[in-house]
Amino acid sequence: MFFENLSEIFTTPKYLDIFFNGLKLTFIISVGAAILGLFLGVIVALVKLTPKENKAMAIPRLICDVYITIVRGTPMALQLFIMAFVILTIRGFPQEITAIIAFGINSGAYVAENIRAGILSVDIGQTEAGRSLGLSSRITMTKIVIPQAIKNVIPAIGNELIALIKETSIVTMIGMQDLTAAAKNVGAGNNLASYFAPMVVAALFYLAIVYALTFAIKLIERRLRASDKR
């Protein structure tokens, strides 16, 4: 029964189509949110790392603190609902955009914390040595601190991306047809009338994506380590 259903999924154009479209949507939301999240995360991390004495940045720092607190303190599903039913979709934005923005904003907070932790983990002596030579804080950051921080940050950001991809599955809750919804749809009574095989197919797709990403991150890590021969 399971194997018959499995072969039916892969031989019926309609089911393949549903899965393909679901995969496409999951991919679009993940990539869009990852780009937005990385962008936001870098900016928020840099703002939060400005020295306390820099009064001009006091308000941006406060905004970033509030942002991180709210994002990390509330459920993702709720954030998505607010984005859809209160802010964006209800004003006519396409659902894809809503999802990308909701997940991007969520991911940005976690990425920011990862980047900040990575930069803070670099010995303060490295910065002091750079500054004592007369280098500006920008050059010290870009030539000395960030190259050393990246090694610590890449694995954490990789994990964040993996979590993001899996988390996008909650878009089914606002009726979007992503990979998870596709499995449900194919398994429904008017189609296969059995959920087991389509769920397994969806799971395999997620696993393949996560595995590919994990592999890519390992590759990058190895490259970084090789480049400083330590």
Partner: peptide, 21 residues
């Protein structure tokens, strides 16, 4: 400040060589 620091070399207890270079 950065100009002044160029004229004042500093050596630290823990060396602080740039580990990535």
């Amino acid at each position: 400040l950065n100009l002044a620091r160029q004229k004042m070399g500093m050596v630290f207890q823990h060396f602080n060589l740039f580990n990535n270079l």
